[in-house]
Amino acid sequence: MDEKLYSKNQLALRNGTDKEEIWVALNGVIYDVSASRLWKNGKHYEHWAGQDLSDELKDAPHTEKVFEKFEIVGKLR
């Protein structure tokens, strides 16, 4: 199956407000974090859903391994 590609604008709509889904991107991969209680309402501490968090991960207390538990919905084009 081909991976779906999404634009930054399409990702931005999945912020927990404009659309129901709560998505974030990391290293070009888009994850659905809707089921996480830590992403309630599209906000996780000072981070907002609907965007690429690759540059922000270096400041996080966790590694990208935490994203392995979330469903991959596609790739960022």
Rank of each mutant, 00 (worst) to 15 (best):
R14S: 02
R14M: 08
R14N: 09
R14Y: 06
N15C: 11
N15V: 07
N15L: 05
N15K: 09
G16N: 11
T17I: 14
T17Y: 13
D18Q: 15
D18P: 12
D18G: 13
K19S: 11
K19E: 13
K19A: 11
K19I: 07
K19V: 07
K19Y: 09
E20T: 14
E20D: 15
E20M: 11
E20A: 13
E20S: 14
E21C: 09
E21W: 13
E21K: 14
E21S: 10
I22S: 02
I22F: 09
I22V: 13
I22C: 05
W23M: 06
W23F: 11
V24T: 09
V24K: 03
V24G: 05
A25W: 06
A25P: 03
A25C: 06
A25G: 03
L26M: 14
L26W: 15
L26F: 15
N27H: 11
N27T: 06
G28P: 06
G28E: 12
V29S: 00
V29M: 03
V29E: 02
I30E: 00
I30Q: 00
Y31K: 02
Y31M: 02
D32I: 06
D32L: 01
V33P: 00
V33W: 02
V33T: 01
V33Y: 03
S34M: 00
S34I: 02
S34D: 00
A35W: 01
A35H: 04
A35N: 04
S36G: 02
S36N: 03
S36M: 03
S36Y: 05
R37K: 12
R37P: 05
R37Y: 12
R37N: 12
R37M: 09
R37F: 10
L38P: 00
L38D: 08
W39M: 00
W39Y: 12
W39K: 00
K40Y: 11
K40F: 13
K40G: 06
N41M: 15
G42A: 06
G42I: 03
K43H: 14
K43L: 14
H44Y: 08
Y45A: 08
Y45L: 12
Y45T: 07
Y45P: 03
E46V: 14
E46A: 13
E46Q: 15
E46D: 15
H47Q: 14
H47G: 12
H47N: 13
W48Q: 08
W48N: 09
A49Y: 04
G50A: 09
G50K: 06
G50C: 08
G50Y: 05
G50F: 08
Q51P: 02
Q51M: 10
Q51E: 11
D52R: 04
L53S: 06
L53V: 09
L53R: 02
L53F: 11
L53P: 01
L53I: 07
S54L: 07
S54G: 04
S54A: 07
S54P: 04
D55H: 09
D55F: 10
D55Y: 08
D55L: 05
E56W: 04
E56Y: 11
E56P: 01
L57P: 03
L57D: 01
L57G: 00
L57H: 02
L57W: 10
K58W: 05
K58H: 09
K58I: 07
D59E: 07
D59K: 01
D59W: 05
D59T: 03
P61T: 08
